[in-house]
Amino acid sequence: MELLSPAGSLPALKAAVDEGADAIYLGLKNDTNARHFAGLNFTDKTMTQGVNYAQDRDCRVHVAVNTFAHPDRSQAWFDAVKKTHDMGADVLIASNIAVLEYAATHYPQLELHLSVQAAATNVAAINFFKQFGVSRVVLPRVLSYQQVANLAQDTDIELEVFAFGSLCIMAEGRCYLSSYMTGESPNTVGACSPAKFVRWEETDKGLESRLNDVLIDRFAEDENAGYPTLCKGRFNVEGDITHALEEPTSLNTLSLLPQLNNIGISALKIEGRQRSPAYTRQVTRTWRSAIDAMKKNPADFQVQEEWNKCLSALSEGSQTTLGAYERTWQ
């Protein structure tokens, strides 16, 4: 079982490699990937350095070209595929049919993984994407553990699951809440609830967070004020002010580790290319220790208190959940 860490920058990449990630994933500095944020991602120069640094240390490099090609400039997505190949990256992660087909026809030797943004949740959908030569599918965070286990049994393709990080509660790649409120979505610009629309305001009623002028949340003095990701705000449902969709919380599957290993999951993905190199370092270190401990003695694996403590401190609202893996969350 491979540990796949996020690299939003060259320092983050080096931190992940140094802490023992089996592979890292990164994106180019444009809207061809789903973490298109200011100050993040890789230029030609940093990508060359990153690929060399990782591969010299037996760490594989996955490149995410996982937004959807715009009709008037599809070439930018095709160029990103070419760059992934030419720079010697090991894997292309893609979700758009146009991108997958381009990769399959132009670079058939390039290992192809289906991005979570393609929202393949069932065997028939996985089979649809097999035609492009996809060898691994990253599963959306909407399946219960049992559903993941069933899929693992029903398909011969490699499965990768999210192990830790910010929790997207909608089927990825099929959520337009962000563009409904701001005009920009993960699919079209590579960002959810983009930072340029965020505004903070101290008011008599508390600290208010807004996204494109819409009030997302209002915090009392003793409350932790989180980023206004629009699905995690407090809204009014017929008089109840509540986290109507989801609370600010992160996914943490440490306790599921032996089970995920047993059902043959190929890779555990850590979310968080938008986070700091320090985040990448600490999360990679923790998961490396956990996976190694589990491999050494799967029967007696126990989650160490210090691992959970470290991960909680790095989580949204300092809270973690098993998310959809657990039926009660759903």
Binding site: S144, I169, Y176, L177, L245, T328, Q330
Partner: peptide, 16 residues
């Protein structure tokens, strides 16, 4: 606009 594993209507009534 979006699909989720979670049923928001059930949750709004405190039902699993």
């Amino acid at each position: 606009l979006a699909y989720s594993a979670r049923c928001f209507t059930a949750r709004s009534e405190d039902r699993p």
